[in-house]
Design a protein around this nucleic acid. Structure first.
Lengths: 341, 341
DNA sequence: GAATTTATCCGAAACGTTTCGGATAAATTC
DNA sequence: GAATTTATCCGAAACGTTTCGGATAAATTC
């Protein structure tokens, strides 16, 4: 089936030089005569030689590969940005001549096995962890190994590690403050599931902004959504059925915000007038529907993650081992001055 | 840095049995005494042995890995479904104990190099090609190798190959016919870039449905969009500025449809009444905005691609080497009977 | 009880690289 | 012209597995 493999040995036999010399000629050592090198290069070219990467990896004890395990459930999971994150990671990686080994494994008992497989099977030189959770066991595990890794997101595990995260708290604080400046006092919040770290930071930004401006933080105005359309819809319905209805609603991601927007419209509210709505992510359709939101530079974060990890693998020290990026507030028409009540 | 590697040799020294016996005990050969096996297993356990996958790969000439190269440009590329596709591919793959090596490489001169790297560097047992183009050179290249591969999408290269594709033509045909049945006669079409294969199939479904129902196919009503918000907006503007305005607009993807929807609303049109709009993909926000569309089972397609490729790698023959899946028409409120004109 | 079978084990080679530590012959030095 | 340096090359070992083809001793057969 496979065309017969052309190896160093093939070239060695073909040219009469030893495998050592062929190897050294091909990898550019300077103890090979110019003429010899040319002969060998010509032969390699003619025979169609391409180094066997697996053999090289075994010998060099280096894979030039990093791992990423997507913590994802079945179809229709809510990660509008995994593609973009992967694009950032992958593009940057190829600048370093490295590749990405990707697995998909839903959180659960098999998840750590997937990590062990990559780490202890020595398949990767480093790992990227995404979507951090409370007491994140993946990070705890990796800390017990000596493998370099970087994390997208923070976790409350008591030990420090290298990470990049968006500053969800600062972002939502700014957004909430902006809504308050528009006159809003009753602001609803549709949160992400509380076991996800980012959910807490975003909620905290909201809470702090309220308090700092003398507004009570009232759990009645907080709904724990599931990041999907359904969550936004249920959240909006619940919040809008309160006796004292909110005049603005923040959602922890754009999909829920868009869905809340649509629900509110259905009961006759005009968005940006009767009710202000804002989200988080800036997914492409948000632009279309003029949703005020916070933009995370996901692609850029992917690039940064790769660069950090690459430095760690090269045994360089990071000058910034923990990076917090402030999301950018994008003001559009879904938010406006409080008019009602 | 790295904790000292525990290899078969370590266990061999520790237990006094040869490396051969240790290997055979660990991989379950039946020519090892039960007692011996137990001693070896206990030692492996105690020492924390995990087989070095790279070494195994080299020896077995098998990587248990397949490759996928994402043909993607910088940030904000328009592939709402790459995450979902990858989730499908990856989940299915892990059922087979295989992993996914992923690269990101924009179409262009370096793209084939990325393929050569995986193929000729013997890093993968098979490949998946996505987002097919006219005269797709990636497929042409892979056909010159003996490596198994499957393609998501078709291409006009004159040689047959294994693929799965959604039947865009049949889907759009059905959708167009549906619009015609609602009384629409002037139907605009916002297409994807013509160099992408799927663009042509979708356009063709539209064209055929018109012709079959005695409606002229008029290029004036076709706009070549870029799959982004901008494309939908420009398409809608152009089509709605025609002397004889369309009463319905089809877009080649949901993002352009949603954007067209928003543009039309801005100039005072009521969607589903004054103007019907439909898309293709069924991305999550489409549900929110009640967009009529065609749903592709992307996750399922990912699973199928993995299964097909796995069979090929096992040297089994495919009973269905070329699969065409009909997308499902999802009728929502963005389409309705022709009222105007 | 000799011949055969069976259970258990292992040495050596192989997968395709890289690299250490020379070896050899030519060139240079004094 | 002997001693030293330099240019060029290579054998062997190693990375950590798997597997071929036995070897040995015990068990079984007749």
């Amino acid at each position: 089936m496979m065309s017969p493999q052309v190896t160093l040995k093939t070239i060695s036999k073909y040219t009469g030089f030893s495998v050592t010399t062929v190897s050294r000629a091909l990898t550019g050592y300077n103890d090979v005569a110019k003429e010899t090198r040319e002969i060998i290069l010509a032969a390699a070219n003619k025979l169609g030689y391409y180094p066997n990467l697996t053999a090289r990896q075994l010998q060099k004890q280096r894979n030039d590969t990093i791992g990423l395990i997507l913590p994802t459930y079945g179809p229709r999971f809510n990660d509008p940005y995994f593609s973009e994150l992967i694009a950032g990671i992958g593009n940057q990686l190829s600048n370093f001549g490295m590749s990405l080994l990707l697995s998909v494994q839903a959180p659960g008992p098999d998840e750590i096995s997937a990590y062990r497989h990559m780490v202890e099977g020595k398949r990767v030189d480093g790992l990227i962890v995404v979507r951090t959770r409370n007491e994140d066991e993946r990070i705890k595990y990796l800390l017990t190994t000596s493998l370099p890794f970087v994390v997208f997101g923070r976790s409350n595990i008591g030990t420090s590690f290298n990470f990049i995260d968006e500053d969800g708290e600062a972002g939502v604080y700014e957004l909430t403050e902006y809504l308050i400046s528009l006159g809003h006092k009753r602001i609803g919040f549709i949160s992400a599931p509380f076991n996800l770290m980012f959910a807490n930071y975003r909620l905290e930004g909201y809470r702090k902004a309220l308090i700092d401006h003398g507004i009570d933080f009232n759990l009645q105005y907080v709904y724990e959504g599931d990041l999907t359309r359904k969550g936004g819809e249920l959240g909006a319905k619940k919040l809008l059925s309160l006796a004292e209805k909110p005049t603005a609603i923040l959602a922890s991601n754009d999909l829920m915000a868009l869905s809340a927007m649509s629900s509110a419209q259905e009961i006759g509210l005009t968005i940006g007038k009767d009710l202000s709505i804002a989200g988080f992510d800036d997914i492409p359709p948000s632009d279309v529907f003029s949703l005020t939101t916070l933009r995370q530079p996901i692609y850029h974060i992917g690039c940064l993650l790769s660069s950090m990890l690459y430095k760690l693998i090269q045994n360089e020290t990071l000058d910034e081992p923990q990076v917090l990026l402030k999301p950018q507030l994008i003001i559009r028409n879904s938010t406006g001055e409080r008019l009602v009540d």
